[in-house]
């Protein structure tokens, strides 16, 4: 399919065209399409969802989709799962929790494999957000790879970042480890029926007290995503954060962060491909690694 035909179908609002456009972006051929559609972006609200594996990110996503649909909003969901570093294949299973929304035409779910990218997102996740935004989705939910201590990229890309934690998996030191505390706009203690849930809430509160908050102070919500409990409160917390961003004008800073994130992904992708080519031709004999790095850098013209 040519780019022109794809753009035509995209503008006629065919889901297949959106699906294809995301694939193009994933294979590094998204330039023309994203460029042509970029003027239509900037309307959607973007929510990031992160947390350790098994905390219930997909179940929370599904509950949030249900809530947004109840309010008449259309929703795009991007679920990132890890690629195998060995085969480069991936088993993408986040859709299983989103099954109730499969045939809802106002919900579009896309699974993305991380394809070697670190930080919890795939290289083309930002492009996928732009494309879903241009397609007209009101809300875009981005679910990261479940890792727990390093997926800070989501905080750059999403306007509101929800960090989900679960009781009974490690003490407050886990919570305090760098990154997670600082990126959360809303904390969720999921599986709130667990006997340790209150302890986790206390630990998060006490960890928060040790930090200086300037402006927005993250909210803490307890949920049981599977039963749909606490979702109203979670949605309300997200809305309050969005309102805060809009009232203070901080939304512009968030938009700029997302833009910078996207530009960095695109630039890094190209640099990495060139770097790989240069490295292939480098010899490893008779040279020390620092000198070799200098030579590689100068070959790249950086």
């Amino acid at each position: 399919m040519t780019d022109d035909a794809l753009l035509r179908d995209f503008e006629m609002h065919k889901p297949r065209a959106l699906a294809r456009a995301i694939s193009c972006a994933e294979s590094g051929r998204g330039g023309d399409i994203v460029r042509a559609l970029y003027s239509k972006t900037g309307r959607a609200v973007t929510i990031g969802l992160t947390g350790p594996p098994g905390v219930g990110k997909s179940t929370l996503a599904s509950a949030l989709v249900r809530k947004a649909r109840g309010l008449g909003k259309s929703v795009g969901v991007i679920s990132v799962d890890p690629s195998s570093p060995f085969s480069h294949g991936a088993l993408l299973g986040d859709r299983i929790r989103l099954v109730e929304h499969f045939t809802d035409e106002a919900v579009f779910i896309r699974s993305m494999a991380s394809r070697g990218h670190l930080g919890g997102l795939a290289g083309a996740t930002a492009d996928a957000v732009s494309l879903m935004d241009a397609f007209g989705f009101d809300v875009i939910l981005i679910e990261t790879v479940g890792v727990g201590q390093s997926e800070i990229a989501i905080a750059e890309l999403a306007q509101t970042t929800v960090v989900a934690l679960q009781p009974g998996s490690g003490d407050s030191i886990q919570v305090l480890k760098a990154g997670i505390m600082e990126i959360a706009d809303v904390f969720v203690v999921n599986k709130a029926d667990h006997p340790m849930a209150n302890q986790l809430r206390r630990e998060i509160r006490s960890a928060m007290e040790m930090l200086q908050w300037d402006g927005w102070v993250p909210e803490l919500v307890a949920t049981q995503a599977l039963a749909g409990e606490g979702i109203e409160q979670l949605w309300a917390a997200i809305e309050r954060h969005m309102a805060y961003l809009n009232e203070t004008g901080e939304i512009e800073g968030r938009r700029r962060d997302a833009f910078v994130h996207q530009v960095r992904q695109l630039a890094m992708g190209r640099i990495e491909r060139r770097l790989d080519r240069v490295l292939e031709s480098e010899s490893s004999t008779g040279i020390d690694p620092y000198a070799a790095a200098e030579r590689v850098i100068s070959k790249l013209g950086l």
Binding site: S83, S84, S87, H88, G89, L91, L92, G93, R95, I96
Partner: peptide, 14 residues
């Protein structure tokens, strides 16, 4: 799993 190990991205529906 076999398809994943062959380098494909497999989406399982449940």
């Amino acid at each position: 799993r076999a398809l994943r190990d062959a380098g494909m991205e497999v989406i399982y529906t449940g």
